[in-house]
Amino acid sequence: MYLNFCENTGGTEMKTRINTEKAWNSGRIVHRGSYISLIMKALIILTLLTIPLLTSGCTTNNKEDSITVLAAASLTEAFQELSHDFKAKYHIKVEPDFAGSNTLAIDIEHGAYADVYASANEKYMTDLIKRGYVNKSIAFTRNKLVLVVPKTNPANITSVADLRRNVKLVIANRGVPVGIYTRKALLNLDSIYGNGFANQVLSHVVSEGIDVKGVLTKVVMDEADAGFVYSSDALTANGKVKVIELPENGGGVSPKYYIGILTGSKNQKDARKFINFILSPEGRKILKKYGFEAEK
């Protein structure tokens, strides 16, 4: 039975009231307030069920693909440009984080999320592969160890042999790849400058940087007379330092860089695409621009 609660006209009013009372007494209708309450509840439930369907379509379409890359500090400038060009070409954002390769490896072991890891030596990459954090890796570029002095060169250093004098030397700590290469190079140079040369030079170390950028900064700021860095980092100083080549083509060491995809990556497809971009002629051109050498 349909009841018009809004109608209130003349002779029909009494008839409507009588019919309503009969229906009420027979239990065939509910109170007007309860009836409206049921309708409101139904509308609320319908709305709650519909909202997720509407919003899910909106958020998914606007989401930007991205990958996280942990890379050695010496790769900073090169990877920043690689990331920019990669995004422009594939519309995939690269979120890089730079530090010493050893620091990044520790971060990964402690649960830091990343899709790609790029190390300045083979050791830390191999350790992560053995522990199951990285699937596999590939060597993708090389660098060279050099000695840098401030542009004004107050200690008048012209060769690595001058480091035997009482100078202020800064190097990276022994856990960082460039620090490892530095100590190995000095030991190799014992064969040229005589036994004990390495120990004599290391006795003049006044500070140890946490990465190669820290070493370069101290030399640029005239806080040290000399420091060992990569040739690529010396290039980024934009003429604020002088470069002194080491005998034996970098002291007999050849820094090699490795890159790989982490097993925990949630976007391995784009991570692989980024590595392939680095290995492409376009990517190698950018690496060369920043002083890196092609991997043989």
Results as ranks from 00 to 15, higher is better:
residue 4 N to K: 07
residue 7 E to A: 10
residue 7 E to Q: 11
residue 12 T to P: 07
residue 19 N to P: 09
residue 20 T to K: 02
residue 20 T to H: 12
residue 22 K to Y: 14
residue 29 I to W: 06
residue 33 G to R: 12
residue 34 S to P: 08
residue 44 I to T: 10
residue 47 T to N: 11
residue 48 L to P: 06
residue 49 L to Y: 11
residue 54 L to E: 14
residue 62 N to I: 15
residue 67 I to L: 06
residue 70 L to R: 02
residue 71 A to E: 04
residue 72 A to M: 05
residue 75 L to W: 01
residue 78 A to Y: 09
residue 87 K to S: 13
residue 94 V to Y: 07
residue 96 P to H: 05
residue 99 A to M: 07
residue 103 T to Q: 12
residue 108 I to Y: 04
residue 110 H to K: 15
residue 110 H to Q: 15
residue 111 G to W: 07
residue 112 A to M: 11
residue 114 A to Q: 00
residue 114 A to Y: 03
residue 117 Y to C: 01
residue 125 M to F: 02
residue 125 M to T: 10
residue 126 T to A: 09
residue 132 G to C: 01
residue 134 V to P: 08
residue 135 N to M: 07
residue 136 K to V: 06
residue 137 S to I: 03
residue 138 I to N: 01
residue 141 T to Y: 01
residue 147 L to R: 05
residue 148 V to K: 00
residue 155 A to G: 01
residue 156 N to I: 06
residue 157 I to H: 04
residue 165 R to K: 09
residue 167 V to Y: 00
residue 169 L to D: 05
residue 173 N to V: 00
residue 176 V to N: 00
residue 183 R to A: 04
residue 184 K to M: 07
residue 189 L to P: 04
residue 190 D to H: 05
residue 200 Q to R: 11
residue 205 V to T: 10
residue 206 V to W: 03
residue 211 D to F: 12
residue 216 L to A: 14
residue 217 T to L: 14
residue 217 T to P: 04
residue 219 V to Y: 07
residue 222 D to H: 15
residue 222 D to L: 11
residue 231 S to H: 09
residue 234 A to N: 01
residue 234 A to W: 03
residue 239 G to D: 06
residue 243 V to G: 00
residue 245 E to V: 00
residue 249 N to P: 05
residue 250 G to L: 00
residue 255 P to L: 05
residue 255 P to Q: 04
residue 256 K to V: 10
residue 257 Y to H: 01
residue 257 Y to W: 00
residue 260 G to M: 03
residue 266 K to R: 12
residue 269 K to S: 12
residue 274 F to A: 03
residue 282 E to N: 13
residue 288 K to P: 08
residue 295 E to T: 00
residue 295 E to L: 03
residue 296 K to Y: 07
